[in-house]
Design a protein around this nucleic acid. Structure first.
Lengths: 112, 112
DNA sequence: GCAACATATGAACAGTTATTTGAATGTTGG
DNA sequence: CCAACATTCAAATAACTGTTCATATGTTGC
């Protein structure tokens, strides 16, 4: 079936694809992506995120739970507040690559 | 020395975020991600994709339209058939990064 | 032109998901 | 323990999305 591994991507199992798609789906919601971006800069509390993005704390918490479960963000308690930040640097890379993709000029003639 | 911008990501406008989220959302469906992965290897026709992934040609076509509109894939007609392939290399990078993220061991203690 | 094949389109259904609202849990300092 | 604050949970609604089916468009060779 697949014969040409030109990339590091080698996804044999169905599970791996579903898991990967899950991560993309999570970042596919504008609200969640905004939350993720804010957390990339530095650890930030739930309340701060809510104020910063003009969202209800409840909604922010809801999304944070999903992002934490997917290991995109990590939580760290400091007193009353809980600060969230990126779990590793890969997410930043993923976003940077995608931004580069968006910025790519339409140099190739397309078959529309 | 300036210290803050650790990432190339600088998304001021709402539009840019929505556009970015749109790309992630598209890759967030397992079927669409599988189609994308197959197209990364080499140009492949709609029918071949359908057979290869055991999907109806109609469904494949639906997804391809979205992927093409988002400039993730490009279409090229060869006789009766239409071959699809990745529009640029960024998508491959994005997926590779995400795979690396998944493979990341749980080295950091988490606040669950 | 017509038949056969390849892909695209549109409507409709089923399942999922983001958001809101209100209450509940947990933490700190007196 | 109590009050005040921060976060989380749960149920309900509204909107979206993937899939299927049937039909249409487009291409090739006779």
């Amino acid at each position: 079936m697949f014969t040409k591994p030109r990339s590091a991507v080698r996804l044999s199992s169905e599970d791996a694809i579903v898991q990967l798609a899950d991560l993309f789906r999570l970042m596919g919601d504008p609200t969640r992506l905004r939350i993720t971006l804010v957390c990339l800069d530095e650890p930030i509390s739930v309340g701060e995120i809510a104020v910063c993005l003009m969202l209800s704390p409840s909604l922010v918490s809801h999304h944070l739970r999903l992002l934490k479960a997917a290991r995109i963000l990590r939580a760290e308690r400091r007193g009353k507040q809980i600060f969230y930040s990126a779990l590793d640097e890969h997410i930043r890379c993923v976003i940077d690559d995608m931004v580069a993709h968006v910025g790519e000029p339409l140099d190739i003639e397309e078959a529309d």
